[in-house]
Amino acid sequence: MTETPSDTRARLRRSARLSAVQALYQMELSGTGARAVVKQFRDHRFGHDGEPGEFIEADEDFFEDLLSGVVRAQDDVDKLTASTLKEGWKLSRLDATVRAILRAGGYELLRRTDVPTRVVINEYVDIAHAFFEGPEPAFINASLDAFARAARPAADAAPES
């Protein structure tokens, strides 16, 4: 079965999201800035047809937007994320990978209104399943759902048919 352009775009964005979560994790642990990490991913991790080696095929511009966007909007994303956590929980107490997933998903929900809410939540829950076998994917689902309700209240107010 041939992949449609829509399927290709979705697949490349999925790879970009996973790479963005990995890059955000790397940035948090190493203290490296977004520009340097974007360059590293473009130079050493992303590949194109015909290149030797094992590379990730991803929407590189979308990846860069996610990474630089999370950095630009991190205060807003973190504040809104913190407001969705149960009382007594702090963002800093969460696993670094969970924080990276919530920040990337939060950025998309807050600033990338061209991406439907359900797509954002489903994509990052799938990413959580790639990293965790325990309760984390459900936690990420609930957190991003609460984030979406706060960030996009009108988007979810459409009448049901």
Rank of each mutant, 00 (worst) to 15 (best):
E3Y: 10
T4V: 11
P5E: 08
A10H: 12
A10T: 14
L12W: 02
L12A: 05
R13C: 02
R13L: 06
L18N: 10
A20E: 11
V21W: 04
A23E: 04
Q26R: 01
E28H: 05
G31K: 07
T32Q: 14
T32H: 11
G33D: 01
A34Y: 05
V38R: 05
V38T: 05
K39C: 12
Q40T: 15
Q40D: 15
F41M: 08
R42M: 09
D43I: 08
H48P: 03
D49G: 15
D49Q: 15
G50K: 12
G50T: 13
E51K: 13
G53Q: 10
E57N: 08
A58R: 06
A58G: 02
A58Y: 07
D59S: 10
D59W: 00
E60I: 03
D61H: 13
F62N: 06
F62I: 00
F62E: 00
F63N: 00
F63I: 09
D65Y: 03
L66S: 03
L66Q: 00
L67T: 02
S68R: 09
G69H: 00
V70R: 00
V71L: 03
V71G: 06
V71P: 02
R72N: 07
Q74N: 07
D75K: 05
D78M: 02
K79H: 12
L80H: 06
T81A: 13
T84Q: 15
L85M: 09
K86H: 06
G88H: 03
W89Q: 12
K90A: 13
K90N: 11
K90I: 06
L91D: 00
L91P: 00
S92M: 09
R93A: 13
L94G: 07
L94V: 01
D95Q: 07
D95R: 08
D95S: 11
A96K: 14
A96T: 04
V98T: 13
V98K: 05
L102R: 01
A104Q: 09
A104P: 07
Y107W: 14
Y107I: 14
L110F: 05
T113N: 12
D114S: 07
V115P: 01
V115Q: 08
P116S: 11
P116W: 04
P116E: 06
R118I: 08
V119W: 07
V119Y: 08
I121W: 11
I121L: 03
N122D: 07
E123C: 03
V125F: 05
D126S: 05
I127G: 06
A128I: 03
F131Y: 15
F131N: 01
F131M: 12
E136F: 05
E136W: 09
P137M: 05
P137V: 03
A138R: 15
A138T: 02
F139S: 09
I140E: 04
I140M: 01
N141V: 04
N141I: 11
S143N: 02
L144N: 01
D145P: 05
A146E: 15
F147K: 03
F147C: 04
R149S: 00
R149F: 14
R152S: 08
R152M: 01
A155P: 02
A155T: 04
A155Y: 01
D156W: 09
A158G: 14
P159G: 12
P159F: 09
P159K: 08
S161G: 11
S161W: 15
